[in-house]
């Protein structure tokens, strides 16, 4: 075999007929796997929906966790003393005695005695307005604000109270805090579980889409083999294709979720101005997703793209082994 390079110009039949016009720029980087296909668009849509659902679940879990920890810490920082009025009792004097006791206890930062009107107002949400409270023995309360990180000795305080003031009870809300904590943790675990399930379903969708695309593009794989492409090269081309689809779907889903949470946050803060809104906020906290939530959504998008890349890589390699 000679080393002579094949020189087309040497004996050209056509070259003279061709005008030697300058060529327009050649964009030779068109992907080898057709970019736009019905299956590809369907996969992007599926991944976008999956990402949206996963991000929604993760964001909701994050909201619950934040709200419950906020609620718990503010509830835990307050303790109430309740005194029930009874006929012939000087309730104001008893209240003052209880308040003095509480104030003297270590760890109590501040106290506030609710007036009769204030105590009655506390019942309004349950009993409605316009009721004549004079006929009702509305319990009176003293609110104790605790110093941060220094819990008073509740047992001693409770004992001193019952000895000094008849029928006074001390409520440190322990049961509520614990129950709320359990409930919030359950919701968070549930949220994480659902997120993982959705990601797994995304992975499976990618498996089907990849093997579908591989058999749909079998002709292309064959031609690539014949022109001397290695399996590695072909696999890289398909992987790049699916990574792009995964990123696209993931970004669309993630952005939709972020828009959703921003919208919900804006809506809820416009609600806070109304009386009903402030109660909802007191119960659930704001619907505004914190930085952590957005980071979680970003992480989900990254995981979705990663899952797509890894799963399609495995599927592509397996299909190439089968063809070969």
């Amino acid at each position: 075999m000679t080393d002579t390079r094949f020189d087309p110009q040497a004996s050209s039949d056509w070259a003279t007929a061709e005008p030697e016009a300058p060529q327009p720029a050649l964009g030779g980087s068109q992907p080898l796997v057709p970019a736009a296909s019905i299956a590809g668009r369907a996969l992007v849509t599926v991944i976008a929906i999956m990402t949206f659902l996963a991000a929604l679940t993760a964001g909701a879990a994050q909201l619950v966790a934040e709200a419950s920890s906020g609620w718990r810490s503010s509830v835990a920082r307050e303790v109430t003393i309740q005194i029930r009025p009874s006929p012939g009792r000087d309730i104001e004097a008893d209240l003052a005695k209880a308040a003095a006791l509480a104030k003297a206890a270590p760890g109590v930062a501040d106290i506030r005695v609710y007036t009769k009107a204030e105590s009655e107002r506390l019942l309004e949400p349950w009993l409605g307005t316009g009721l004549n409270f004079d006929e009702l023995p509305v319990p009176r309360v003293v609110i104790l604000r605790l110093e941060a990180g220094n819990r008073p000795d509740f047992a001693a305080l409770r004992k001193a109270l019952t000895e000094t003031v008849r029928g006074a009870t001390l409520d440190d809300h322990r049961i509520w805090i614990d129950r709320l904590g359990v409930m919030a943790n359950t919701l968070v675990v549930l949220g994480i579980g659902v997120t993982i399930l959705v990601l797994a379903a995304t992975g499976l969708a990618v498996v089907f889409a990849t093997s579908g695309a591989m058999s749909g593009n079998r002709e292309i794989v064959e031609v690539l083999h014949f022109v001397g492409a290695s399996d590695d090269y072909i696999a890289r081309e398909f992987q790049r294709h699916f990574l792009q689809l995964g990123l696209k779907g993931g970004l669309i889903g993630g952005i939709c979720a972020i828009v959703f949470f921003l919208g919900a946050g804006a809506l809820s803060s416009s609600f806070v101005a109304t009386p009903g809104g402030s109660q909802i906020e007191a119960l659930f906290g704001t619907v505004a997703l914190g930085i952590g939530g957005f980071v979680a959504i970003g992480a989900i998008v990254a995981v979705v793209a990663g899952v797509t890349a890894v799963v399609s890589r495995v599927t592509v390699r397996r299909t190439l082994r089968e063809i070969g």
């Binding site: 087309p8 110009q9 050209s12 039949d13 056509w14 070259a15 061709e18 005008p19 050649l26």
Partner: peptide
């Protein structure tokens, strides 16, 4: 491009 011209597919 050269080969394409040579087989008459330059255009």
């Amino acid at each position: 491009v050269e080969l394409l011209r040579w087989v008459g597919l330059g255009e």
